[in-house]
């Protein structure tokens, strides 16, 4: 077993790490790069808690090999806020109680941000289907959908 050296771009910064060939991007983020915002809820792509953006597309980082990050642009929840300024989605989630335990929150925020970049004015149904791969067991999704709508309106106004 030989480790692989990977050069990637992480939240806009150059980053390098070594990982085993079978190691997932999720494990690399959490154990090699010290970013524990992406969570492992299932390891099989069914819960979305490990969602990150890779070259502009959402992926379950548990279903990506660390080696595949070579040359890629990776964005995680840790890159959403700019300095002290939270992303409008992050602010809306706090202001409108869109989280309870918070374990699904990083994945949902990354997924919702990607949606609003593609579709600044989605319907509730579009949001619900877009986020269908992000399981939340606490909220019943109601306040999540409303917070995404509030953030979307805020971002359209900005």
């Amino acid at each position: 077993m030989k480790n692989i050296h990977v050069s990637t771009t992480l939240n806009g910064d150059d980053a390098e790490f070594v990982c085993a060939p079978e190691e997932t991007l999720l494990d690399a983020l959490r154990n090699r790069l010290g970013l524990s915002g992406a969570k492992e809820g299932c390891g099989t792509g069914d819960c979305g808690a490990c969602t990150v953006e890779m070259d502009g597309r959402l992926v379950c980082s548990c279903l990506v090999l660390g080696a595949e990050a070579q040359g890629a642009q990776i964005k995680t929840v840790e890159g959403m806020a700019i300095g002290e300024a939270l992303h409008p989605l992050q602010q809306a989630f706090i202001d409108h109680a869109a989280l309870q335990c918070g374990i699904c929150t990083p994945g949902i925020l990354v997924a919702a941000k990607n949606l609003l970049e593609r579709n600044p004015d989605p319907t509730d149904t579009e949001i619900r289907y877009w986020l269908a791969g992000n399981l939340c067991r606490c909220t019943g999704y109601d306040k999540i959908i409303k917070a995404v709508q509030i953030a979307a309106a805020d971002m359209r106004g900005a």
């Binding site: 524990s36 969570k39 929840v77 959403m80 929150t105």
Partner: peptide, 15 residues
């Protein structure tokens, strides 16, 4: 604990 939980800073069991 809102900011911790929307920024990925909050530490859960596996963290």
């Amino acid at each position: 604990d809102g900011v911790d939980k929307v920024t990925g800073r909050a530490l859960y069991g596996a963290d």
